[in-house]
Design a binder for these strands. Sequence first.
DNA 1: GTTGACCTTCCCATTGTGGGAAGGTGCAGG
DNA 2: CCTGCACCTTCCCACAATGGGAAGGTCAAC
Lengths: 140, 140
Amino acid sequence: MNIGEASERSGVSAKMIRYYEGVGLLPSAARRTNGYRDFGDQEVALLQFVRRTRDLGFSLEEVSTLLALWSDKKRPSREVKRLAEAHIADLERRIREMRAVMKTLRGLAQHCHGDERSDCPILDDLAAPRRTTVRPAKRR
Amino acid sequence: MNIGEASERSGVSAKMIRYYEGVGLLPSAARRTNGYRDFGDQEVALLQFVRRTRDLGFSLEEVSTLLALWSDKKRPSREVKRLAEAHIADLERRIREMRAVMKTLRGLAQHCHGDERSDCPILDDLAAPRRTTVRPAKRR
DNA sequence: GTTGACCTTCCCATTGTGGGAAGGTGCAGG
DNA sequence: CCTGCACCTTCCCACAATGGGAAGGTCAAC
């Protein structure tokens, strides 16, 4: 099948299919005589795997690792589980950071009457914070 | 003062100070005869404002709006509050999405024994999901 | 044979940040 | 005075992952 149909079936855009191939995440697709890429059900399954792992927030780097683990029938399941749990921990950390920011923002918004008047504690605090402003660490 | 000291005092890297100036987020800094940028306390205060709003997760676009609102003494505080609350809502939405992903991941990891054995329900599910796989919407 | 829907590659933009090169400046110690 | 070092300048590159779009080839239907 052509790239368009593979895209529809897998939920990965044609653009991204070519990109994944280009960066070596996926093996180069077979070509027809006219130069068009030719996909089979197996390639579509691979693309679906990639889409699902991407949907779960894994980076392409991690997807690559998962693909390798997937094709290695003898690897211990421990490795896969470790990757999944590291990702969960990362999500937890980021959620904690975002919650801290929300707390600060809610505190600021609460004191701002938010009407026609011009004085605004939010801006005042951004200019010279009183107490609980959040300084998050490096993002990944 | 030189850019290095302004950077230290504001917590914004010299690189970013130049970048902010370049994209028009901040007015062009004054120059000495030797071509060096020259910063005063007022400029440092501006940089600190930017750093704090960035720490709260506002985009440069939003920081720009906040700077404009800050310097406009007559604007209604409603506008500022609206921006802050939109940002809070955005954080809430993203957290909800991440929680959904975590739920899926936890479910998968739970069924994986994670030891020397090679069979792994996580990979099996990524290859052909049984039920609760998450398809999040567009990120911003 | 033309039209329209495909496909191909290639380049550019995004967001915000850092790295690093090549070159000028300023100060301190020998 | 010279040397070295720490600072400054601009400019280009890279990142991660994706989309937009141009310029051109192909195929099928009418």
